[in-house]
Design a protein around this nucleic acid. Structure first.
Lengths: 337, 337
DNA sequence: TTGAAAGCGCTAACAC
DNA sequence: GTGTTAGCGCTTTCAA
């Protein structure tokens, strides 16, 4: 059984190929009667445009690429990425785009895959995650490849379109809440400081302390990667210095920290109150349930897609930035006044 | 800056387009001296083949599609899918393929996306997950679209290529281990029986009981979906019937069940021993650590890719089946003799 | 072993 | 509004 082509539709409907093409791509340019007839034929014989041909002729593939660098350790344990992917995927479906996923497991792979993803002309645009220094971004800019970053990029943020939440303010609110509840020694479990999330949430924490006139104590801070094990480890480092509260910058790290607190025989929130960040599934499975800053992860993903498609349709524009706010979700882990 | 094409390479290297194409696609068909010169030029000017053109001419896109149906509730909380995706992605990278991800969030989307994914000729082949009845499989078979199923498909397993673990045996071993430790009332927390995983692991559980001559007690079994919350809920249903052990068919469900046991004020493994299935991250974060059946999820993903690519390269063959075995990983949750 | 030439199925000027 | 025509960049016969 041969492929059904535009040609076939044209022949059966008694029009030219061009007309069929128009019916598909700009229906308003075709006389209604003709359009209807063509649409009828398309349905009847089950015609589907060949994407390769269309892509070759129009240099648009209706394919977006999602890039997640190898450095992301938490990819397979933190529900953050699955949620993000869901948001992105859903938005792609809604906009009639398809999604191509690029994961790397080593630096060499990263180089190769970037090469192919870009120069092969396969994807119309890229969504890039992870807010670390990314050596490929300058190249993308130079080659004028449309892309949107999820999370403020580490460098050149002014020249790069991105979507993010207000991490500084989120962390500020989290810390502030603990202080308002009367906690005196609020510790901080942070992430890598070569990631903007890590830097920003740290800044928010510091800001809240400063505002209350509380002296910053480096012994009450610990910086690790973003996994649950890192949260546990960080908490163990903090415990000897007797914090009465902790702000952990992801729910996953908070969950690890809570385990460390339990293992040390301390009570939550009695001895140590804790607030996380994300409000993804780990927050609802801890004991007690985790107070956390909710960030709209799926929305972030779908906004990125919308922004990218917009960029694609309206050539060369100033970079766009969308910053969403976060929301404090109070549960049991932070205690009350 | 214009795109660099085959033409450019040919001109600069002083050969024909066909020769350059050969250098790329079947290097052995070109005289070494010429080949070297062409390769040199390719590197120098940084030529990358245009995938759309190549795909149009050869009707091979070097793109594989991964389909995850909307019914999968646990997609964003269970690390199973992230691990699978990692395995698949890595194998794709290694084989020089790219990966396209199709998630659905509703039935209508599913229909539309299947349409496009298939008839548009975008992907060379498909990897399909979820072992539920899938109304699209017959269509795929009929249209001779190459695909590999991950997990034994619910229907027509004989006609469909798939990779899976031996779920019956895995569940048997898990249950058997609990019985061997002297547990008398071994409960079962199962999944949907419209999924082959659900059916098979249930069968393994029953088989282990039968072998020991233990009467099957429906009150000691509970069937839910695959999430942590379902595990919790299922355990609550079982508790009144005083099981002294439980086999939960995923780690995630086991984690939920453990929480239910703790909440009921019972000890693990003292009052109730528990064994899970997967050996993914939840298993290492429970208290006590979870005894579980390890299944090689990433391997499953990469084997599926290998099988699919093989199918692509060697037209029409009998369906292939690869069944991997699982391994009991003993930790604290099952107790000892 | 290499080159010439004919498409792959579609879009997009351009003419009518 | 609609048809004609010329590619998009590559692979793949077919001859040489």
């Amino acid at each position: 059984m041969k492929r059904i082509t535009l040609e076939d539709v044209a022949r059966i409907a008694g029009v030219s190929r061009a007309t069929v093409s128009r019916v598909i791509n700009s229906p308003s340019a075709v006389k209604p009667a003709v359009r209807e007839r063509v649409e009828q034929v398309i349905l009847e014989i089950g015609y589907q445009p060949n994407l390769a041909a269309r892509s070759l002729a129009s240099s648009r593939s209706q394919l977006l690429g999602l890039i997640i660098p190898s450095v992301v350790q938490s990819l397979f344990t933190d529900p953050y990425f699955p949620s993000l992917i869901q948001g992105i995927s859903q938005a792609c479906n809604e906009h009639g785009y398809m999604l191509s996923l690029f994961l790397f497991h080593s630096m060499e792979e990263e180089e190769k895959v970037y090469q192919r993803a870009l120069n092969s002309g396969l994807v119309d645009g890229l969504i890039i995650t992870a807010n670390l220094v990314n050596p490929y971004l300058p190249r993308l800019i130079e080659q004028k490849i449309p892309f949107v970053h999820i999370g403020r990029p580490f460098d050149d943020a002014e020249q790069i379109s991105f979507v993010d939440v207000d991490n500084v303010n989120g962390a500020y609110l989290a810390t502030h809440h603990l202080l308002r509840l009367g906690r005196k020694r609020v510790g901080f479990i942070g992430g890598r400081l070569d990631a903007t999330v890590g830097v920003d949430r740290y800044a928010g924490y510091c800001q809240a302390l400063r505002e209350r006139g509380i002296a910053f104590d480096p012994l009450l801070t610990a910086f690790r990667d973003f996994t649950r094990a890192d949260g546990y480890d960080a908490m163990c480092k903090l415990l000897p210095y007797r914090p009465d509260a902790v702000f952990a910058i992801t729910d996953m790290m908070a969950a690890g920290a809570m385990q460390a607190i339990h293992d040390a025989g301390l009570a939550i929130p009695g001895d140590i109150a804790i607030v996380g960040f994300d409000d993804l599934s780990p927050a609802s499975t801890t004991t007690p349930p985790l107070t956390t800053m909710r960030q709209p992860v799926r929305l972030l993903g779908s906004l990125a897609v919308g922004m990218l498609i917009d960029l694609l349709n309206t050539s060369l524009q100033p970079p766009r930035h969308t910053i969403l706010s976060t929301e404090l979700v109070i549960r049991g882990s932070c205690g009350t006044l």
